[in-house]
Amino acid sequence: MIRYSCRGDHEGSIALGKSLSEFWRPFISLPANEFHSLQQAVENEGGRSSHAFLVGKVLRTAGLFHVTVGDTKTAVHLARTNATIYSNSRWMKKAVASENIVALLWEGLVERRWSESQLTQFDRLLAPINALRNLKPELRHRRALSLRSFDKDMLKQIHFKRLVRPWLEDFTGPWSKLQLSKNTQEALSIADIPDPAERHQSRRISKAKPENSLKLVHPGWLISTAGKHYHRT
């Protein structure tokens, strides 16, 4: 057993010599359509959470180089294949960019196990990963779902649904404030991601007033529930 530590709350142990990748190994060379069918089968069995769980298990391999590379390729393949399935893409990206990969690399670095060529291959695999690339549409997706449930409870006017429905169906498209109700506009003003260079100006307010729980700050940033407020100085 070897200890790894990438985050404080994700410390744990990996059992060396035991690989869970054997489940996926035979499928790596499958044609794309058959591979997709396999994914669908997994989906039907357990849903996307189960799918992500399986991928996560694949990534927790034994620290063997060829196994690690194979599993990483598999996970990236899964992520790319699922690119058109939005919710799955989200889960896949989480799995691919998770600390599981980092933990494997970390193990090898601690033991100085990787050769120059192996390190180069790892870097080549990691370089294309960008978990922030689709973050904005993902947040818009989640925001749309949130507002849908919000509006379902709060506003039952038929005319409002008629306005919101087409917007929800195209949540990645540009939004017009004219399409939205006054209450919804207030919530919508928050979900744009600020430029990373601006984020350092954010600070956390430890004590939040309950009445501010929906006070949405910033032209660009979040958020707002009691006890967890971020706003810009």
């Binding site: 960019a97 600390e99 922030l132 958020i223 707002s224």
Partner: peptide, 19 residues
């Protein structure tokens, strides 16, 4: 729901940072 948005953003930044 809005808090879940924050969590999503934080995790995405964290995982990209790990990479």
């Amino acid at each position: 729901h809005l808090e879940s948005l924050t969590t999503t953003a934080r995790l995405a930044h964290q995982r990209q940072t790990n990479v």
